[in-house]
Every structure is written in C-alpha cells, then in structure tokens.
Amino acid sequence: MKAVQLIAAIALACSPLLVQAQAQVLRMSTTTSTENSGLLAWLLPAFEARAGIKVQVISVGTGKALELAKNGDVDVTLVHARAAEDKFVADGYGIDRRDVMYNDFVIAGPVSDPAGIKGSKDVTGAMGRIAAGGAKFISRGDASGTDVMEKSYWKLAGTLPAGSRYISAGLGMGEVLTMAAELQAYTLTDRATYSTYKAKTGLDIMVEGDPKMYNPYGIITVNPARHPGVNAKGARALTDWITSSEGQQKIATFRPAGQQLFFPSAKAR
C-alpha cells in the first residue's frame, strides 16, 4: 500500500473516534459574574467528571453571550437578563430555558460615600442622589445583564450624572470594580463579583435590599433546529445536571470566605 493510501486509511479508521472526541466538548457562553466570582471553577469540574464532557467557557456580558448563542458559536448559554432570555427563546434561537440560581445587585462605592447613600434600600433614590452630587459613576456599558439593569434604574430615577461624571467603561464587572476603586466612584455590581473583589478594591456596599435588585440566572440550550452543528446532547446534560439536586446543592455550597453568593432556584421537574 502506498504511503498516501495508508494515511487515508488511517484517517478513515480514526474519524469516528475524532467525531466522538469532538462531541465531548461543550461550548458555553456566560456572564463575567459567574466566572469572576469563582463559581464556574467550583461547579464545572464536578459536571465534567460525571459526564465526561469538557466545558469550554466564554465569559462576556449577557448581551454578547446571547449573541454568541444566537450565531451558533456556542452550544449553551448561562446568563442573567430575563427579558432578553425570553426574547431569545421566543425568536427561536434557544430552547429549554430553565431557572438555575439567583443573587442580587448592590451599589458599591468609596468608604467616604460622597453622595451620602450608604444604608439606603431604595436603588432609584440612591441613583438620583449620585446624579445630583459631584461623584463619579462607572457603568459597565457593555449590554450585559448588569448594564441593562443599571440603565433601567437610571430611567426610573429620571436622571444621569452629568458629563464626565458618568463613565461608560465597556468592561467586565471585575475591571469596572477596579476602575471604581481607582476613581473613588460608585458602580452597580452583582454581589458575587463584589465579594470576590472587595479586598482588592476597598469599596463598600452602599445600597442593598431593594426588591428591584433581584438578579436571577437562567440556562438555555441553543436551538439545534436553527444550528444543526451544536452539541445539543451535551447542552442537555449540563442543563439537567445544573438543575438537579446535585448541581443545585453544589451551587448552594459555593461559599468563599464563608459567604453564600448564589442561591439555587431550579424548579422540580
């Protein structure tokens, strides 16, 4: 047998194994909060060991995470912007959306608290006081779930900080918290990322406890009817596991420094 024929024969024999190996990779887009908080590093190894599937994570804002899923560049997405998630499914890009967990948003700011909002449980009132004062506010500015929520609060407040006091960063949550610390500014953040960065930034929680700051997360499989190449089987395996009693317990026991940062919310099926 000629060398070329031998190589072709080996390639043909190995191709089913190659397909099988490729099928054991799952691409997931998700938010920076799940990555920056350390949750995924805690969760995914348990799933990978049980399912024999390697999860490749792309950590971006929710808007970008859904765009990647819309284009079929990932197999599954884990995000936190319920209205956008529902539209994604209604438009036929995703299937089998399920509740996974929740936490909440907080306004973080410098200990000096120039706007005098510390201890408030009224997020829109606090945003109004920031806008009326002389302090800076750092916005994610990246169409993430946090960014969408922040802009809804400004809309309710009916105002924005003037001029250069409102900075649209276009960055992830950890980077925005770092910038807020450097500029002694306020920002809206999910509690999990804030807790992870607290020691690095020295920022304090100023506003918390408003029901409008509730922050639910959902997982959605990319619709295989629209993108036949997606690993729908792997996405279903992850969805089933993360919403199972085992996955939910794993979320509940993620307690860096003894503080629970995410709370399971999957409904029994």
Rank of each mutant, 00 (worst) to 15 (best):
A199C: 03
Y217A: 05
T187C: 15
A199Q: 13
I219F: 06
E182S: 15
D190V: 03
L171H: 03
L188G: 03
A185K: 10
I219Y: 07
T189K: 04
D204C: 02
G174D: 05
P211W: 09
V176D: 01
V176Q: 02
G174K: 06
G209V: 11
T178C: 01
G172H: 08
G170Q: 07
L177P: 01
T189Y: 07
S195L: 13
T196C: 11
K200L: 08
N215V: 00
E175Q: 14
Y186D: 02
D190F: 06
T187L: 01
I219H: 09
G174A: 12
Y214D: 11
T178G: 11
T189N: 14
Y186W: 06
S195F: 11
Y197T: 00
S195C: 05
Y186M: 02
G202F: 00
Y214C: 03
T189H: 13
G170R: 11
Y197H: 12
Y197D: 01
Y217T: 06
A180E: 05
A185L: 09
P216M: 05
G202M: 01
L203S: 07
T221Y: 02
E182N: 14
G202N: 02
Y186V: 01
N215I: 01
S195T: 06
G174S: 09
T193K: 03
T196R: 15
M213G: 06
L188I: 11
E175I: 00
A192N: 05
